[in-house]
């Protein structure tokens, strides 16, 4: 921006210096009789010496690379030696190409590529191939059918590359009674979740790598929640769980802005995805408060079971992860 502005200003200055009206636009077709071709022999022994020196340095650096490879295997030294070998050789070639060998400027005529007569002949030749054929339309249609068939033979096996989407996308193993465990399989207790931190949980016994598995668990002041009536008892003691997979692009929602932290004191708590900063409000069912995500994080109803273990009180409130055509409202 500032560069362009500077250019514009400087342009004004120049205009004042040369206050003549503009010259006619340059003609890009100079007189054809100008012949720019030339040939000069530099005959420059000093440059020849410099080129030779550079080539010797390239050889030495290459040898150094081999020696370093055997005795040191240090990435920095190896890179330095190998890089210098090539750069020296390059410099030698530049000096040779620009100061040692004949400097030639040549003019090559540009051949006319198109040949209308030949175009016509080719068209005639193609047409004459089917001379005397009477049922040309039928043949063309049948040939088209064959092309579709051959295409199908080539394309259909590609369908084996993956299953039909069906109900697979957004599925999860969470169901009523499923125990919440940490990434090593230990049960998470209600008292493990304190205000100001968040805990990552998984359904006991399920594959942790599936997008439907991980949840974030946070504890807020029970008074702070503003949930729809049917979710009132989903947050026992103010402990709420949401899918950890962002509904925007599927990254893990691994940032928690907590009102207890000094740097964010007085700010409403939020779950944030670090990929594109979709921001969700854990007190209001993880509704989107900022960023590109189009829908709330699915909520997992919780209950506190025997021994104060956290358990799912039901399935997620919505399909998990990034949306697709089949994601309902």
């Amino acid at each position: 921006m500032s560069l362009l502005a500077a250019l514009a200003i400087w342009n004004r200055v120049l205009r004042n210096r040369h206050s003549r009206r503009g010259l006619p636009a340059p003609e890009h077709e100079p007189e054809p009789e100008v012949d720019p071709s030339s040939r000069e022999l530099p005959q420059d022994p000093r440059s020849e010496g410099i080129a030779a020196l550079l080539f010797v340095l390239a050889g030495l650096a290459g040898v150094a690379f081999a020696v370093l490879y055997i005795v040191a295997d240090d990435t920095q030294l190896l890179g330095l030696a190998a890089g210098l070998a090539l750069v020296f050789a390059a410099a030698g070639l530049f000096v040779t190409g620009l100061r040692v060998v004949a400097q030639v400027t040549a003019v090559e005529p540009r051949p006319e590529v198109d040949d209308p007569a030949a175009q016509e002949e080719v068209a005639d030749q193609l047409r004459s191939g089917f001379e005397g054929v009477s049922r040309r339309r039928l043949l063309t249609a049948a040939g088209g059918a064959a092309a579709v068939g051959v295409g199908a033979v080539a394309a259909v096996p590609l369908a084996s590359l993956g299953p039909r989407p069906g109900q697979r996308i957004g599925q999860s193993a969470w169901a009523r009674g499923r125990r919440v465990v940490d990434h090593e399989g230990r049960p998470i207790l209600a008292d493990d979740v304190s205000e100001g931190t968040f805990v990552t949980g998984f359904p006991e016994g399920a594959d942790m790598e599936r997008l439907g598995a991980p949840i974030v668990i946070v504890r807020l002041d029970p008074e702070a929640f503003d949930l729809p009536p049917q979710r009132r008892d989903w947050v026992p003691e103010g402990i709420a769980a949401y899918s950890k997979i962002c509904t925007h692009a599927g990254c893990a929602v691994s940032l928690f802005r907590s009102p207890l932290d000094q740097s964010t004191a007085g700010v409403a708590p939020a779950l944030v995805c670090p990929c594109h900063y979709s921001t969700f409000d854990p007190a209001r069912g993880a509704q989107v408060t900022f960023g590109p995500a189009g829908r709330a994080l699915p909520q997992l109803p919780l209950m506190i079971g025997r021994g104060r273990e956290l358990r799912a009180a039901g399935p997620y409130s919505a399909p998990v992860g990034p949306a697709w055509w089949g994601t309902p409202h």
Partner: peptide, 10 residues
């Protein structure tokens, strides 16, 4: 440029 036209390469 000098001697360069639509019909040649310099």
């Amino acid at each position: 440029g000098r001697g360069r036209t639509e019909r040649n390469d310099v």
